[in-house]
Design a protein around this nucleic acid. Structure first.
Lengths: 213, 213
DNA sequence: TAGATTGTTAATCGATTAACAATC
DNA sequence: TAGATTGTTAATCGATTAACAATC
């Protein structure tokens, strides 16, 4: 789909934000918007918006601007929200449960089909309609159901132990909430990290250095 | 503390990662490391590491490299982990509870002192040793205890309503888990976003486009 | 047609990498 | 001293911004 062979990660990371803003505009029944207006709204430059969008195709119309609904749909489909990535979650403690409950899998192109935790006391309970079982079942489960995405909500060492197995079982994408840094020898696997501690430390730095500037 | 007036956000966001790797090295009783070795370990260039560190000072020694413990301490103190940012959390649902429980506030320079939620059924319960009360108390609480950081784990509209009040009450830093995009008129307030939906969409894109390349 | 705004090429800016003199 | 590796300046690369011809 991409017009250019390589779209930079900076551009990709801006797409969800465009998607969000366009959704809001749609709710306000704004049907049409120019790159200049959108830029003002989002605190970007009109140039950047046009450059970003033109990585994927010409979605606008000269003299008119962009159709909000159409552009939102295009970006959504670029992001793959019409997919149905079969997803398992490893670790259903506080964080895992919150992630499974909080995130709108279906609207974002995912489907939670399996949940695993070493703690036997929660085996048999359900998160988002999925029954939690022991990690011993992961291999079998993957062979039968071929999930492509794994959400890791487990400690660093547990993650370190399980990642290469998961790749072997066919997992292609990791949403990694663990402290473990996944090192990829494998070309065809991607990792999206959510390092909460890193984010919090960045906040600490920025709060600490506030008044000095 | 910064040697340069402005340290770019790219550099700042790499600091926690350095901090993490140096911690691991310390555990392995590695006392000394060169930028070349660290670069190899972290998948960076030695140049970048030296450039990054020299934004803050010359922590190394020619012909020797860097002392791991010392460098880690320096980075920690740059990040502000020796601070004690007084922090409140707004919204103690699944996500808020998980964040409060999961994150190691003390080790990262924060202290949770207040927790608020509109749901009366959880008033009086505790998260991380802090009793949850009604948001009606926030103003009084801030006047008495002067927290500087607020963690937002509430829906978009609730966040939209409360942010400017919180700034008025003296909040300087937001750790924003809500969908709401905080717009800053205020110069001396910082926002660190954790947009889980954005992260998940990025993962979707990257998984979707895996084989094509 | 005239006005507006895109898509795209060119210019600028900032960040990363390379090179090397300083020095432990 | 010789070897190693830093701190820092210069070169390169990529991303953002500006400009403008194409066109609705």
């Amino acid at each position: 789909m991409p017009k250019n062979d390589k779209v930079s990660i900076s551009v990709i990371r801006r797409l969800p934000r465009y998607y969000r803003y366009l959704g809001e505009l749609l709710q306000k029944e704004v049907n049409r918007i120019s790159s200049r207006e959108l830029a003002q709204l989002m605190n970007l430059t009109a140039s950047q918006i046009r450059q970003d969008l033109n990585c994927f195709g010409g979605f606008g119309q000269q003299g008119y601007g962009y159709n909000v609904a159409m552009l939102r749909d295009e970006i959504g489909s670029i992001l793959g929200i019409n997919n149905n990535h079969k997803t398992i979650i490893i670790g259903v403690g506080n964080l895992g449960k919150a992630v499974a409950t909080y995130v709108n899998f279906e609207k974002l192109g995912f489907e939670l089909i399996g949940a695993f935790d070493i703690d036997p006391s929660i085996h048999g309970t359900a998160v988002r309609g999925v029954t939690v079982t022991t990690p011993d079942n992961i291999k079998d489960f993957c062979e039968k159901n071929s999930p492509s995405v794994a959400i890791l909500c487990i400690p660093r060492l547990a993650a370190k132990e399980i990642v290469s197995d998961l790749i072997e079982y066919g997992i292609k994408g990791f949403w990694n909430f663990s402290q473990y840094e996944i090192r990829l020898e494998h070309e065809d696997v991607v990792v999206e990290n959510v390092h909460l501690a890193d984010s919090m430390m960045t906040l600490s730095y920025r709060v600490s250095t506030l008044k000095q500037s």
